[in-house]
Design a binder for these strands. Structure first.
Lengths: 336, 336
DNA sequence: CTGAAAGCGCTTACAG
DNA sequence: CTGAAAGCGCTTACAG
C-alpha cells in the first residue's frame, strides 16, 4: 500500500507561516494560541478544505469517542425479537443528541447473546468507550463481570438490586401518584389492574407501585389480571372484566395492553370512559390517535436517552456518577 | 499525558517466540502464517487477554469501518419530526446485521438540516466512511454535491430521477400486482384509492402504480382521496366514502392511513370486509393485531437495510454498485 | 506563545 | 515464512 502523507496540515502551516503543531493547536482550540492567529489559521484551513483526522486523534488518545447502545435483538426463523421500536427510537434519538453535544457518536450494537467477554472486547479494541444497555431482563449476569473489569456502562430502565451499577430510569411513582390523585378527584374508588408480568423490571415496579398507592389512597382493588405488556394480553384480559360489575377504572401497566383491552371492550360495546375508565402507561405516539384518546402516564424516553449518554460520558471520563430517575407525569385525555 | 506503550503485543510475541509483526499477521489472519503458528499465537493472546486496537488499524488504513445512517430528525418546541420508528428500527437492524458481518459498524446521524459540507466533513475526518440516507424528501440537493465530491452514499427508499445515485428500494409493483390479481379472483372491480400525497417519492410511486394497474386490469376507479401517509388523514378520508355506494375495495397507500380509515369506518358501523374491503401497504407489526387484521403488502425493510449496508460497503471499497429493488408481496389477512 | 520531536499501535513493503 | 523498519496524522511534554 502506497501512502502519501496528508500534506494539508503542512500546507496550512506554511501558508499561515507557522508550524504544523500550531495548526493543530489552533484548530483544536488550544487556549495558548492568540485569537488572531487562530482565526487566520481557521480561514486558511477552510480555504484548503482541510479537516483534521478524528481517527488520528482517537488513536493518539486511545479513545474512540463512541458510545455503544446495546439492544437485545435476534432473528430466528424470520421472527424478530427486539425492544419495541418506538421505545428504542426515542431513547436512541435522545442519546445521539446528547452524545453529539459532547462530540461523541452512538453506535448501535445488536445483542443476540453477546457474552461479557464479547462486550469487553469491544472496549479493549476501542470500538466503543462504553455501553448503554436497553431492554435488559432480570437476571442478566454480564453486568457483574463488566463492572469488575471496569468497563463503563449505564443501564436504562433497569437496575440490579444491591449493585452499584449506574442506571437511568423513569420515576413511575410521580406519574402514578398524579393518576391516583386524579382518580380521587373524579370519585373513582374501585380499581382493576392489568399487570405486566414478572419478566420486566418495569412491570414488577409498576405492580408494586400500584398496590402501595391503592392502599395509601384507600381504594379498593377489585381485580388484578396477569398480562405480559403485549397488546394481545390486553385483549385477552377483557374477558376477566366482562360479565361482572366493572370497577370504576382499570389501570393498565402499559399502553399496549390498554390498546388491546379497549379494542376488546369496544367490540363488546363497552363505553369508555362511561362504563369504565381505562388508563395506560408510556404515552406512546398512537395514544393520541385512538378513539377514545388514551389517558396515560408520560415516560420521558427522549430525556432518559440523553441523560444516559451524558452519564456514560462522565463515567468514561472517570468521574463519579450517580443513578437517576426522571419524573413521569399524568396525561389526561379521553379514556379516563 | 504520560503514555506507556501497550506492552501486550510484544509480550505475546516473546511468549510465542516470534516477532510482533508475526503476532499481528497471525491475528489478522494473514495467509502467510502457517496454521500451527497461528493457533499457538491465538492461544497465547487469549491467555494474556490481548485484543488488537481497532483504532490503530483504522488509523493506519484511513478507514473508520463505520457507516453513517442519516435520518431526518428535529425537535422544535418539544415536537419531534422523525421517520416512523418502526420503519427506522427495521432498516437499522438490517443495516447493523449486514455491517457486522463485514466487520463494519453503524453510527446513527440525526439530520436536522446538515449541509452537504457538514456531511462531507464527517467523511474527511474519518468519522464514517459513507452514508445511508433514510426518509429523504423529494428535492434534496445535497446528493449532487456529495456525489461530485465522491463521498460514498446510498439512498434508501428514494432516488433522484436521472441521477446515477445508488438506491435501494422496495419494488412496490410486485406486491401491488399480486393484490390486483387477488382482487380479480375475488370479483372486485370497482376501487377507491387513498393516496399518500406528493411529498414522498414512495407515495408518488404508489399512486402512479395504482393507476396503471387499475387500467391494466380493467378496474374502475370510483374515487381517489388525498392523504398524507398519516393515520389522521386516513381517518379523515372516511367521510369521502360514506353516504354513497362503496367501491368493492379501498386501497390505501400505506398501513397507517388504512388504520385510520378502518377506525373511522368501525365507528360508523361499516363492516369490513363485508361492506367494503380495505388494504394497506407496509405490513406494520400492528397489522396483525387489529380487528380485522389488515390485508396489506409486505415491505421488506429489514432486507432493505441489510442490502443498503452491503452496497455501501462495496461502494466504499471502490467497486461498481448498481441500484436494486427488492420485491414486495401480498399478505392476505382479514380486511380484504 | 511556538517549534521540533517523540510516540500512540497498528500494517506492510522490503529484504532475507 | 519471518523480522526490522517506516509511516499513518495527530497531541503534548519539553525547550525555548
Amino acid at each position: 500500500m502506497k501512502k502519501k502523507a496528508t500534506i494539508s496540515r503542512r500546507e496550512i502551516a506554511s501558508a499561515a507561516g507557522v508550524s504544523p503543531s500550531t495548526v493543530s493547536r489552533a484548530l483544536a482550540g488550544s487556549p495558548l494560541i492568540p485569537e488572531a492567529t487562530k482565526r487566520k489559521i481557521e480561514r486558511i484551513a477552510k480555504r484548503f478544505g482541510y479537516v483534521p483526522s478524528d481517527l488520528a486523534r482517537s488513536f493518539y488518545q486511545k479513545k474512540s469517542f463512541r458510545l455503544g447502545l446495546v439492544i437485545p435483538f435476534s432473528m430466528s426463523e424470520g421472527r424478530v425479537r427486539a425492544v419495541p421500536s418506538e421505545y428504542f427510537s426515542k431513547v436512541l434519538y435522545g442519546a445521539v443528541g446528547a452524545a453529539k453535544a459532547a462530540r461523541y457518536s452512538v453506535t448501535v450494537i445488536t445483542d443476540d447473546g453477546l457474552s461479557a467477554r464479547d462486550l469487553e472486547r469491544e472496549v479493549l479494541s476501542h470500538a466503543v468507550d462504553g455501553f448503554i444497555f436497553l431492554g435488559g431482563r432480570i437476571g442478566d449476569t454480564r453486568y457483574d463481570e463488566l463492572h469488575s473489569r471496569t468497563v463503563p456502562f449505564v443501564l436504562v430502565h433497569h437496575y440490579v438490586p444491591g449493585k452499584p451499577f449506574i442506571s437511568v430510569d423513569t420515576d413511575s411513582e410521580s406519574g402514578m401518584r398524579e393518576l391516583f390523585a386524579y382518580f380521587r378527584e373524579k370519585s373513582v374508588r374501585v380499581l382493576g389492574f392489568l399487570n405486566g408480568g414478572e419478566s420486566f423490571v418495569n412491570a414488577v415496579d409498576r405492580t408494586r407501585l400500584f398496590s402501595s398507592l391503592a392502599e395509601e389512597f384507600g381504594f379498593t382493588v377489585m381485580r388484578s389480571v396477569d398480562g405480559d405488556f403485549s397488546r394481545t394480553s390486553g385483549r385477552n384480559a377483557a374477558s376477566h372484566f366482562l360479565g361482572a360489575p366493572f370497577p370504576d377504572a382499570i389501570v393498565c401497566a402499559n399502553d399496549r395492553m390498554a390498546f388491546g383491552l379497549i379494542e376488546a371492550f369496544k367490540r363488546e360495546n363497552v363505553a369508555i370512559p362511561a362504563d369504565v375508565r381505562v388508563t395506560g402507561f408510556d404515552n406512546q405516539d398512537v395514544s393520541t390517535l385512538l378513539t377514545p384518546a388514551l389517558t396515560t402516564i408520560d415516560n420521558p424516553l427522549y430525556d432518559i436517552g440523553a441523560l444516559a449518554a451524558k452519564k456514560l460520558i462522565h463515567r468514561i471520563r472517570g468521574e463519579e456518577v450517580a443513578s437517576e430517575q426522571l419524573p413521569s407525569r399524568l396525561i389526561v385525555r379521553e379514556s379516563a
